[in-house]
């Protein structure tokens, strides 16, 4: 059974004060997420991720199209009792303590009063806020607010969990904990739909990802499918700056950082390149096959759309800077770690 079915969903806002003009936030979007799936919804800022989530939560009304969650309409309270939602940059009633907030949300979600205390204690422990349970939220740090946000989203044991930028504001430990928690939710058979622009998170976690940009879905599929098909390459790293001309004659891209050189060659040229190093008596550091990362796919997809959408002389979307920001994080997972930056 499909957990989320989106059919031709479209959202257009009116902008301007006197002369209203339409601004399309979401082009007709078709998307299906199966039950039990961990789905990543990727895109740069302003791509339409949050608009999609707000429509699914019934906070914003679509201009056209329809969507169903667990086979039910978006305004069906029976469906809402079975979903959890963490908004982007969550803000809660800051005069409440963590425990009071969760109790309040538990009541609204229809958790039986007898079970409520047990559930609240369990999720507080799960998100690492047991010690701060009786502290008012106005004294919480950004990371703690994010954790309590996650706690309220899973408190009532929902079947589908929607998380909008769940890693935002978290330190590396916090991010890891959220990742583990999302994997745990998946292992419990829950569907997790999360939006992010941190590609390494999506790459590490998701069964499938959808890439959205300027309100349009640019690609969808399993990470392996999306990152397959590109020409394989081998990265060779060595100490000493000799033999660069030889490598360049092999068609390699060379990057120098201090006394270390990193070159990327095709697999066919790998032996020739290693022979070159031996002849020159250079110290080999590593030879690593490079697979295409999700980031490459992301940049490629967004790059194409930026070209097609960019008016003459105007800057494109902030995709490059997003890619730059997160390339370090992405390197944790998919790229061979050499510790060498591009020269």
């Amino acid at each position: 059974m499909a957990a989320i079915e989106i059919h031709q969903l479209e959202k257009t806002y009116s902008v301007g004060f006197w002369r209203k003009r339409p601004k399309r936030a979401l082009s007709p979007l078709d998307l299906t997420v199966e039950e039990g799936e961990l789905f990543g919804f990727l895109g740069p800022n302003g791509a339409g991720k949050t608009t999609t989530l707000k429509i699914l939560m019934g906070l914003v009304f679509p201009s056209s199209g329809s969507a169903r969650i667990l086979g039910m309409e978006l305004d069906d309270p029976r469906m809402k009792a079975q979903i959890g939602f963490l908004p982007e940059h969550p803000y809660f009633y800051d005069y409440l303590t963590g425990r009071e907030l969760l109790r309040y949300y538990g009541h609204l979600s229809g958790v039986a009063p007898k079970q409520l205390n047990t559930r609240v204690d369990r999720v507080l422990e799960q998100v690492g806020l047991k010690e701060a349970a009786n502290l008012q939220l106005r004294k919480f740090s950004k990371g703690m607010l994010q954790r309590v946000g996650i706690a309220q989203a899973i408190l009532h044991d929902p079947r589908v969990v929607f998380l909008d930028e769940p890693m935002s504001g978290l330190d590396p430990m916090g991010r890891r904990e959220v990742r583990n928690m999302m994997e745990e939710l998946k292992s419990e058979g829950k569907t997790v739909f999360f939006s992010t622009h941190i590609l390494s998170d999506a790459e590490a976690l998701c069964d499938r990802v959808g890439i959205i940009h300027l309100g349009q879905l640019r690609g969808i599929g399993a990470v392996e499918e999306l990152t397959a098909g590109a020409r394989a390459q081998v990265e060779i790293v060595w100490a000493g700056t000799g033999s660069l001309s030889g490598f360049k004659s092999l068609g390699a891209e060379c990057h120098i950082a201090g006394d270390t050189v990193r070159a990327v060659v095709t697999p066919e040229k790998q032996d020739a390149a290693l022979d070159l190093l031996r002849r020159e008596h250079l110290r080999l550091i590593s030879v690593t096959p490079v697979r295409r990362s999700l980031e490459d796919y992301f940049v490629e997809k967004l790059g194409k759309s930026a070209e097609s959408n960019r008016p003459n002389g105007t800057a494109g979307p902030k995709m490059q800077s997003d890619a730059e920001i997160h390339s370090a994080a992405a390197s944790e997972h998919s790229r061979p770690h050499t510790g060498i930056g591009k020269s």
Binding site: M57, P77, A81, F85, P87, P90, Y91, F92, L108, F162
Partner: peptide, 14 residues
């Protein structure tokens, strides 16, 4: 404005 409504209206609250 403070978006506290998001986590209320995403629950079974009409």
């Amino acid at each position: 404005d403070k978006r506290t409504l998001y986590t209320v209206l995403s629950r079974p609250v009409r």
